[in-house]
């Protein structure tokens, strides 16, 4: 069974700060990490390979330094990594990104399951996974919390919902986006780390993919960011300190009317 894991390198949101003068993101000194949700996708991809055989391929679209994310995926057990990187992809929104990644998947050709994290921690859109599936015209199951079983080209999975979960059967090939509950990503082993260090990551440019150029990058993106701003800071809070008996009375008095 061949598995493709589509991942994204993101700034570590825990380190992102806002410049109060310019109201812009300070990205300097912020470490790049693999989108936390993609870590579950990588782990699941490696586990599926360990269980069913075949290979697990990681792909990412991003700047040249996103190679580090693919190397980390290899250290966790992925067999190959491909970096999809070209100036022509710059400014892609989710539609153009889904299209580009789908074309990369077409180049790999032979796959049974594509895995993605449920969403990326920087954009939080959750649109690229379904975008890839739609462009490839394959079924998808989003928010998967467990892969129960795969046999005879059919996967049975549990899909998270607001109230619990659904058990869904899907034919392969398919795309699954996964949630945290599905597994606990491994710490890359020493052998994995050494393999990753030596791994050669091919870069695919627009010219290497069978793409329609008007569908790439900024031109291929219907959405425009017209304004970016910092949310107004929350007003300074009222903090009570002292005997619990007093502090709780003060708070209750303040909130009484709002609770009804």
């Amino acid at each position: 069974m061949n598995i493709i894991v589509s991942i994204k390198q993101v700034p570590d949101t825990t380190q992102v700060r806002i410049d109060p003068e310019t109201n812009t993101l300070i990205r300097e000194g912020v470490e790049s990490i693999i989108n936390p949700f993609d870590m579950y996708a990588i782990e699941e991809g490696v586990r599926l390979k360990e269980k069913h055989g075949g290979k697990t391929i990681a792909i990412t679209m991003g700047p040249p330094q996103a190679e580090a994310a693919l190397k980390e995926a290899i250290s966790m057990g992925c067999d190959e990594g491909y970096l999809i990187s070209d100036r022509a992809f710059a400014g892609s929104d989710t539609l153009a990104t889904g299209y580009t990644l789908a074309m990369a998947v077409k180049k790999i050709k032979d796959f049974d399951i594509i895995l993605c994290g449920k969403q990326a921690s920087d954009g939080d859109t959750a649109q690229v996974g379904p975008g890839i599936a739609t462009q490839l015209d394959i079924p998808q199951v989003t928010y998967v919390k467990k892969i129960e079983d795969i046999k005879d080209k059919v996967a049975t999975v549990e899909r998270m919902t607001e109230e619990g979960f659904e058990i869904v059967k899907t034919s392969l090939p398919c795309l699954l986006t996964v949630v945290k509950e599905i597994n606990e990503p491994r710490i890359p082993s020493l052998k994995g780390r050494m393999k990753a260090k030596k791994a050669i990551i091919p870069t695919w440019k627009a010219i290497d993919l069978d793409v329609d150029e008007v569908r790439l990058g900024l031109t291929g993106s219907p959405t425009w960011v017209s304004k970016i701003f910092t949310p107004p800071p929350r007003p300074k809070g009222k903090i009570f300190e002292g005997e619990p008996e007093d502090t709780t009375t003060q708070l209750t008095d303040l909130l009484k009317d709002r609770l009804v």
């Binding site: 929104d93 989710t94 539609l95 889904g98 954009g123 939080d124 859109t125 959750a126 649109q127 996974g129 379904p130 975008g131 599936a133 739609t134 462009q135 998808q140 989003t142 928010y143 899909r159 998270m160 919902t161 607001e162 993106s221 219907p222 959405t223």
Partner: peptide, 23 residues
């Protein structure tokens, strides 16, 4: 922007080749 909504309209927007803003 529910589990259903986010899954569904991501597909619909691609089919219609239009822009979609999440959440």
């Amino acid at each position: 922007a529910t589990f259903i909504g986010r899954s569904l309209v991501s597909r619909v927007a691609v089919k219609l080749h239009t822009g979609l803003t999440a959440d």
